[in-house]
């Protein structure tokens, strides 16, 4: 008979609970540590940019450059705005973005409606064609598009800047999903009420799809605001359509020794978007994750 070495069945629960509590606290600390570290990584470059934008140029050459501006050069901001023409560039970016966003929504809504609610020949083939555009990134078509735009005489115009982007396969895909998930009874009810297709679209579908459309708007906005290659290729020598992205590059190139001014320019370009981010967080998240969660 082996000595009874059975584990004490009635061990008090206290050690286990304390163990869990300690674990929990450690995990909490670890969690906040990771969060803080992550925040530092994200914030520090931005903070430094703001600080550097207020330094005197010779201070910038110090090692280390000061972490706080003792002699804030507030003039860099109006300088960046005026000599950097930032007002014009932001205006151009806004025009570009508004055109692209609104027209992408229009074309996507129309096409998605057709795929979701209408019957017509070759519907499946056409849908595959629409989806296939997702496989052809814009960069692959740049060469010829530039040629097309220039033969239309649209170089350095807003048409040339925006027209290639007025349709989006992603938008059609997204909206079609959303339309298809509307209760089918709505369609029946509308028909019974004598609504034609167009009225169904404007009176029923659109109002109910506002969140998704807002999400698409945010996605389009970010995509178009952030464009660099195409505006670079299509812009001319002047400020007629030059957008903020290209304008910032221009500002930096002409201010190689006045780095504080070009950094002030980046802050001006960046802050409004942060404010928009805070306001439109929900839509942003929704648009960026559409398609990820099944």
């Amino acid at each position: 008979m082996p000595a009874s070495s059975a584990p004490p069945q009635l061990a008090s629960p206290a050690p286990k609970v304390t163990h869990h509590l300690l674990n929990y606290r450690l995990r909490l600390i670890a969690r906040y540590l990771i969060l803080t570290l992550g925040s530092l990584i994200v914030i520090i470059p931005i903070y430094l940019a703001i600080v550097n934008s207020l330094l005197v140029p010779s201070q910038l050459a110090h090692q280390p450059p000061p972490f706080f501006p003792t002699n804030p050069q507030w003039h860099t901001y109006p300088d960046a705005w005026s000599s950097g023409h930032l007002g014009v560039y932001i205006r151009n970016s806004l025009i570009q973005t508004i055109i692209i966003v609104s027209l992408q929504i229009v074309t996507s809504v129309l096409a998605a409606f057709a795929f979701a609610f209408l019957e017509f020949p070759f519907k499946r083939t056409l849908f595959v064609i629409f989806l296939s555009t997702l496989m052809i990134p814009f960069e692959v078509t740049v060469t010829q598009n530039l040629s097309t735009i220039s033969s239309l005489g649209w170089m350095n115009t807003f048409q040339g800047l925006t027209v290639p982007f007025l349709a989006t396969g992603f938008g059609v895909f997204l909206l079609r999903q959303a339309f298809l998930s509307l209760p089918p009874e709505l369609r029946e009810a509308a028909l019974l009420d004598g609504y034609g297709n167009v009225r169904f679209l404007t009176r029923v579908v659109l109002p109910l799809s506002r969140p998704v459309i807002a999400a698409l708007a945010v996605f389009s906005f970010l995509g178009s605001w952030n464009q660099y290659l195409w505006p670079l290729l299509v812009s001319g020598n002047d400020n007629k359509i030059r957008t903020v992205q290209i304008g910032l590059k221009q500002l930096a190139a002409t201010q190689l020794d006045q780095i504080n001014v070009s950094l002030a320019g980046t802050v001006i370009a960046f802050l409004p978007l942060i404010i928009l981010l805070i306001i439109f967080q929900k839509q942003l998240v929704r648009s960026l994750t559409a398609g990820s969660v099944k």
């Binding site: 040629s147 220039s150 033969s151 005489g153 170089m155 001319g236 020598n237 002047d238 190139a253 002409t254």
Partner: peptide
Amino acid sequence: VQQGGYDVTWSKWQAGLTT
């Protein structure tokens, strides 16, 4: 018309040959 650099001027010149 300020182009900001010889390389930019030359790129624009070449682009101008088509447009």
